[in-house]
Design a protein around this nucleic acid. Structure first.
Length: 802
DNA sequence: AGCACGCCGACT
DNA sequence: GTCGGCGTGCTC
């Protein structure tokens, strides 16, 4: 019986979330496999799709259409990744095709192009206006002006033009000319004798050709080895001495070769960690580890030696790092150990380079993969080990559909491959640490720094007292300024961090540090300009904007936030001789700018590096002996239950930047909340106590990890449409879920209007909701037929509650 | 996502 | 009377 292909079409809707059936033309029958991309007729156009299986019968009553073309020679999704895509769609409430697109490199995303073709029905004037060059033209409504689009649509309705569709596959393989020769060595020798005296270059080429291997050799290599120019080679080609054939090459993102390194000697803790991971790797256990190592405890060396074990076992390894940590220094460290076997996947590569790295992995040529979030989908086979460094980083969660967390995907793949997953962090997320406490992960603690380097001394500066004493600059306390001046005198370097996160305005008293909070949620209230009120983004509570501090009656209660530029100017005024380097979103927008700034600082072209969060991660300059945090509180004030956790993580990390090598480090943290546990415990780098304290807070507030959370967001240009949609969703949620579920909202988002759209949200906290999936699917169905421009998003375990 | 079908208001 | 607005429903 004839086979029917099941195809997921590239149309992300609820109705097309299940595969459609297509007949398979005879000439495609023996090449078609699940996991291949195809083009199919769909309605009155052609779209791309992915074959997910074959059947012999179908429910569909109508006449089946046939697959148009196959886009791939081999499947782009292996069976594991096909299964993963389905699981991803289930758990993130995203469309299956959207998940598949996310898993594939950008170049494999086929695009559909429309063309508009004139017919004989057109009048001469119409032809002159719309088809000046007489031929068909591209019909991209976003690129043409509205009048032209309207005109062309009108002509189509009149049947005077037709529209054609073309699916364009962007996947392109780069080639270079490859040299082969069909002449025998003796023939070449004869030729050489005949030209030897007058054409030494040709003779040299002929000598080289005599020793040419059977397979094609890149022309550049031939030219270099024989010492001839490409003109000589082209000349030889016309004489029939050699043939040039296209040779597939990889766009090589590794420019310069890296000096190889050998494994470093491990201390007892590191060795114990490597041993535990080794056992799991060699026994092929899907066992998960949490490597909890203070900054400077040598986690990376543990990762590298564990990867080496997997490779020895003939398996491959995946190492995930946050995008921001994916610097050449970082990747070079891996390449130095594993050389050619390493593939790097990240957004800094061109589309072509990404595709080539992906193919090297797919073909098993690269067995160590280093990359950011989306690298978790790399088509690696025989996985022996997955490592996720800085596991607590929120960038592992994608904030568009599918809203997946790379950690969950890593754990899924570990299970699939029976291989261990190692999560590493100095400050693990509460979720992860709690799971370790429950025994789901094995904890491997690295409590000692390499060579027992001391931790930096951390000073907490009470900015309330500071501001009382010296009027003038808000941003710099006297002790911090003195410390900076001291480093300048000693020709040492300083890192200053300005916490820009949550520039969103909350009210804080400059005299006592009091932050206005919601009486119901214990979350800071957010200042709204229009209407002028304080609002809680969790429960919707509203109150008037205070003019005096409810705590100390001071009038100095105002909203809080400052910018790097302003701080730079102020600092330059205070310290005219200091050379300051500013690093923020603005100064690093250009590609490579980030790198360049860090290199400058590394060469001591500047004394002070002033930046936002981005300087907290992984940079390591031995000459930095002072780290200052200008405003530790901004993140604390955010209306998010993870505010304390983020603050603790950030302060702990940035403190780790001070004092490397022989020079001891010092850290100054300026804060209006010197007694807050997140700040106090960051001072002593006491993660365990922070974990216990914060878990208690989460328990009190019914927050994760004690509860699961789902965030539903509706957005629309018209605020009332978004709000109305959210109230309808709320009704559906309330009706479908048990009264055990805690439903917060609807509330406007902290930043109520982004890109001309208003956002409203509802958060569901729950422990056990068997109907949840059904309720959310019902909401998804409902949002199909929503007013134009309304977007409803479902985010399981959201990272941003604002 | 597109696109057709179909039902209402403002124009040649 | 028709043109064109966009709400609704379908695509194997």
């Amino acid at each position: 019986m004839a086979q029917i292909a099941q195809v997921l079409v590239d149309v992300p809707t609820m109705q097309t979330n299940d595969p459609y059936s297509y007949a398979i033309p005879d000439q495609l029958a023996d090449q078609l496999q699940p996991g291949m991309r195809v083009t199919v007729p769909f309605g009155h156009r052609v779209v791309s799709g992915v074959v997910v299986g074959f059947t012999t019968s179908t429910q569909y009553e109508g006449q089946l259409k046939s697959i148009r073309a196959v886009l791939d020679l081999a499947p782009v999704l292996n069976p594991e990744l096909q299964q993963l895509a389905d699981w991803l769609a289930q758990t993130t409430y995203a469309f299956r095709i959207t998940c598949i697109q996310t898993m594939l490199p950008n170049l494999l995303k086929a695009s559909v192009e429309r063309q508009i073709v004139p017919t004989n029905e057109l009048t001469a004037t119409e032809r002159a206006v719309y088809f000046p060059d007489g031929a068909a033209r591209d019909f991209d409504t976003s690129k043409l002006d509205t009048d032209t689009v309207a005109g062309l649509l009108k002509l189509r309705r009149a049947g005077k033009v037709t529209v054609t569709y073309q699916v364009k596959d962007k996947a392109s393989v780069k080639t270079t000319p490859g040299i082969t020769t069909s002449l025998a060595p003796q023939q070449l020798e004869d030729l050489k004798q005949s030209v030897a005296t007058r054409a030494p270059k040709q003779a040299a080429l002929l000598t080289y050709l005599q020793a040419l291997p059977d397979h094609p050799v890149p022309q550049a290599k031939v030219a270099h080895a024989a010492g001839v120019s490409s003109a000589v080679i082209r000349g030889a080609e016309t004489k029939g001495w050699l043939k040039r054939t296209p040779l597939e090459v990889y766009r090589d993102p590794f420019q310069q070769p890296v000096k190889p390194t050998t494994p470093l000697r491990l201390n007892a803790e590191q060795q114990a960690a490597v041993d535990a991971i080794t056992t799991a790797v060699t026994q092929r256990q899907a066992k998960n580890f949490l490597v909890e190592g203070v900054t400077g405890s040598g986690k990376t060396e543990v990762y590298l030696q564990s990867i080496a074990v997997a490779l020895q076992q003939g398996r491959s390894a995946l190492m995930l790092v946050p995008e921001i940590a994916l610097t050449p220094q970082m990747t070079n460290r891996v390449k130095a150990r594993f050389g050619q076997r390493v593939a790097v996947l990240h957004s800094g590569l061109s589309k072509g380079e990404q595709y080539d790295e992906w193919r090297r992995i797919d073909r098993g040529e690269a067995t160590v993969v280093v990359g950011a979030r989306s690298a978790v989908f790399a088509p690696i086979q025989h996985l022996g080990l997955i490592i996720m460094d800085e596991e607590h980083e929120s960038s592992y969660k994608q904030d568009e559909n599918p809203r997946y967390h790379a950690r969950d995907v890593a754990l899924w793949r570990g299970k699939y491959h029976d291989c261990p997953v190692v999560l590493g962090s100095a400050t693990p997320s509460l979720e992860t640490r709690a799971r370790a406490a429950k025994g789901l992960y094995t904890r491997l603690v690295l409590a000692h720094r390499i060579n027992d380097r001391p931790l930096p001394t951390v000073h907490i500066i009470d900015m309330r007292a500071e501001l009382k004493q010296h009027q003038g600059d808000d941003d710099f306390s006297a002790p911090l300024l003195t410390a900076i001046q001291d480093r300048l005198d000693r020709h040492e370097q300083v890192v200053l961090m300005l916490n820009r996160r949550g520039f969103s305005s909350f009210m804080m008293c400059r005299d006592c540090g009091f932050v206005l909070k919601c009486p119901n949620c214990d979350i800071s209230l957010t200042y709204h300009v229009n209407p002028r009120v304080m609002k809680c983004h969790y429960c919707g509570h509203e109150e008037a904007v205070p003019t005096v501090c409810p705590n100390c009656r001071s009038r100095k209660i105002r909203y809080y936030g400052t910018g790097t530029q302003k701080v730079e100017t102020a600092l330059q005024k205070l310290l005219p001789t200091a050379r300051i380097l500013r690093m923020d979103v603005d100064s690093t927008r250009r590609k490579g700018a980030h790198e360049k700034l860090l290199n400058q600082f590394g060469q001591h072209d500047a004394d002070i590096l002033l930046g936002t969060q981005m300087i907290a991660k992984g940079l390591d300059f031995p000459n930095v002996t002072l780290v200052g945090v200008l405003n530790a509180d901004t993140a604390l004030g955010l209306p998010d239950f993870r505010a304390s956790e983020r603050t603790f993580q950030l302060l702990t990390q940035v403190s780790g930047r001070a004092g490397r090598a022989e020079k001891p480090g010092e850290v100054y943290i300026q804060t209006f909340n010197p007694d807050h546990y997140a700040i106090q415990l960051a001072r002593t780098q006491d993660y365990e106590r922070f974990f216990v304290t914060e878990m208690h807070m989460r328990h009190q507030g019914n927050y994760p990890p004690y509860y699961y959370a789902i965030q539903l967001t509706a957005s629309h240009e018209d605020e009332s449409v978004a709000a109305k949609a959210m109230y309808q969703i709320l009704a559906a949620v309330k009706q479908g879920l048990s009264d055990q579920a805690i439903i917060l909202g609807p509330t406007p988002k902290a930043i109520a209007r982004v890109k001309r759209k208003y956002y409203y949200q509802v958060v569901i906290k729950y422990k056990h909701e068997p109907h949840l999936k059904a309720v959310l699917d019902q909401i998804r169905q409902g949002s199909q037929r929503a007013p134009r421009g309304l977007a409803v998003a479902i985010d399981a375990e959201p990272m941003n509650f604002m």
